[in-house]
Amino acid sequence: MPQISQLAETFASQLFWLLVTFGFVFFVVGKGMLPRVISTIDQRDKSVADDLAAAEAARTAADLAEEKWRTQENAAREAATGRVAQARAAGVASAEKTLAAANAVAEAKIAEAEARIAAASSAASDEIEAVAADAARDIVARLSGANVTAAEAKKAVKAALNG
């Protein structure tokens, strides 16, 4: 094979041009492109670190805002509970006052009704005594023929009723 026999003659020349090509590529990539790639990576790392720091600061601010909001909410809830308790107490006091007034009116009506009942009972008792006295006088007159006065008949009926 003729290619193998020429290998020794062309080896040094190929090795030289291989070294020149790799050297050129190394300097072009190493001196021209690599610093740009490294600066881009550094900028990206700095941007990520800045974004993480900003996110941490935003999270801290959000936590503080949430704590402030919770404090305000708890204060508002306590104030509302106090107002509800005040309104409830005022409602209970008003209801008790209204109930007391209604009870006073009812007690007055009951006392008035009891007085009327007592008066009616007394009047009925007096009338029963009067009717009983008249009946007793008539019965005595019919049975014995004796004439009894109204006062005597009343006295006898009272003695019989009251014991």
Rank of each mutant, 00 (worst) to 15 (best):
residue 127 E to Q: 08
residue 30 G to N: 00
residue 105 V to H: 06
residue 19 L to I: 02
residue 99 L to D: 14
residue 139 I to S: 13
residue 120 A to K: 07
residue 107 E to F: 10
residue 135 A to I: 06
residue 113 A to W: 06
residue 42 D to T: 09
residue 106 A to C: 12
residue 106 A to R: 14
residue 126 D to A: 12
residue 123 A to P: 03
residue 146 A to T: 06
residue 51 D to Y: 11
residue 90 A to S: 12
residue 99 L to C: 12
residue 54 A to C: 11
residue 156 A to F: 02
residue 59 R to W: 05
residue 98 T to K: 08
residue 140 V to T: 04
residue 4 I to H: 01
residue 80 A to V: 08
residue 131 V to P: 00
residue 158 K to Y: 06
residue 48 V to N: 15
residue 118 A to M: 05
residue 63 D to Y: 01
residue 28 V to E: 04
residue 4 I to G: 01
residue 143 L to Q: 13
residue 86 Q to H: 10
residue 116 R to C: 03
residue 112 E to A: 12
residue 105 V to Y: 04
residue 141 A to T: 08
residue 162 N to K: 13
residue 11 F to N: 06
residue 48 V to Q: 15
residue 16 F to Y: 09
residue 75 A to F: 07
residue 146 A to M: 04
residue 130 A to E: 05
residue 55 A to S: 13
residue 123 A to C: 05
residue 21 T to N: 00
residue 109 K to C: 04
residue 28 V to M: 03
residue 122 S to I: 05
residue 154 K to L: 05
residue 116 R to N: 10
residue 1 M to E: 02
residue 100 A to E: 13
residue 128 I to H: 10
residue 10 T to H: 07
residue 79 A to Y: 10
residue 57 A to G: 08
residue 92 V to A: 12
residue 126 D to S: 13
residue 40 T to G: 12
residue 55 A to P: 01
residue 27 F to M: 05
residue 95 A to H: 11
residue 163 G to W: 11
residue 151 A to L: 04
residue 103 N to S: 14
residue 125 S to R: 13
residue 50 D to S: 12
residue 148 V to K: 00
residue 121 S to R: 12
residue 67 E to L: 03
residue 146 A to V: 04
residue 157 V to D: 00
residue 46 K to N: 14
residue 150 A to T: 05
residue 39 S to A: 11
residue 54 A to R: 15
residue 142 R to A: 15
residue 59 R to H: 10
residue 84 V to S: 15
residue 1 M to V: 01
residue 144 S to F: 08
residue 34 L to S: 01
residue 142 R to V: 09
residue 46 K to P: 05
residue 56 E to D: 13
residue 153 A to S: 04
residue 147 N to D: 14
